[in-house]
Design a protein around this nucleic acid. Sequence first.
DNA 1: TTAAATTAAGTTGTGTACAATACAATATGA
DNA 2: TCATATTGTATTGTACACAACTTAATTTAA
Lengths: 155, 155
Amino acid sequence: MQEETMTPPELMLENQLCFTIYACSREFTKLYQPHLDKIGLTYSQYLVMLVLWERRQCTVKELGEALFLDSGTLTPLLKRLQAAGLILRERSLQDERKVLISLTAQGLALQQDAMCIPGKMAEGTMLSPEEFVGLLGQFKDLLARVHESNISNSK
Amino acid sequence: MQEETMTPPELMLENQLCFTIYACSREFTKLYQPHLDKIGLTYSQYLVMLVLWERRQCTVKELGEALFLDSGTLTPLLKRLQAAGLILRERSLQDERKVLISLTAQGLALQQDAMCIPGKMAEGTMLSPEEFVGLLGQFKDLLARVHESNISNSK
DNA sequence: TTAAATTAAGTTGTGTACAATACAATATGA
DNA sequence: TCATATTGTATTGTACACAACTTAATTTAA
């Protein structure tokens, strides 16, 4: 008795690591959304601000390396942050290919309003500090592996 | 001696679980890209096809529930799959609000060409089967938690 | 049994992502 | 030194994501 063709387990949605991560990422964004709305940032813009709050100033390239994003994504995003009065964009005088991104006083001040967000997210995920640290370490390791694969594929 | 304002650890990029997952998701998509190019699918389209290869037929709403996507994302994506000749879209006769999505012969046949992809991805991530299963379980658990939070936030 | 509520898709507008390309500035080497 | 290659950013075009809204079909509840 011949069965109808069945999907092998490797092609089933519930066994896809990539899909679980992809869905997880989008659900996390939704968890941030209401809090980010209050300070007028999108999730991607928030990530850019995190980098700038740490470094005060960096180039578009450095932002891209930190966030795994290219100029095609960052340029319009940064223009919107500039239009919102949060950052400055100016050509480097030393190397005119580079564009230096820095915080305005308003952009710096916004960090205070963002302080409460990580706590709200911890509530949302209901992870203990130990679980959080464990997961972060494992996911960073996975990110490093996949990124490494992509690097070597592109050579 | 007053230090200059420093970023607290909770706001540092390297401590963000959400960012690690977000970056991981995009790096995974890049890992799939060259293989999906060969069969003419985008990553999101591949996920839709995974569901259809399993179920043969379902509504837009069911697809959305499986993939955590809404009709605003799915409708244009499905129209592109239809234009590519891989699926059919037809109103349900029982309930004309519903649109039934089903595979064409060509769409069904494409599963054969996709069979090799999971193996290629396993190479790319260099995860042992045990590591894979462990990570999948942890991500699924996290996804369930965050999704649950989002459900209760929207009430 | 209808008026009100709910449901399922589609539409519109904004904001990413990213490949491919363009271009100007800088670095390199014969 | 000057032609070539590389680098850093911007631009263009395609494809998501998703909120907000619209429309039509179906439920429901008074």
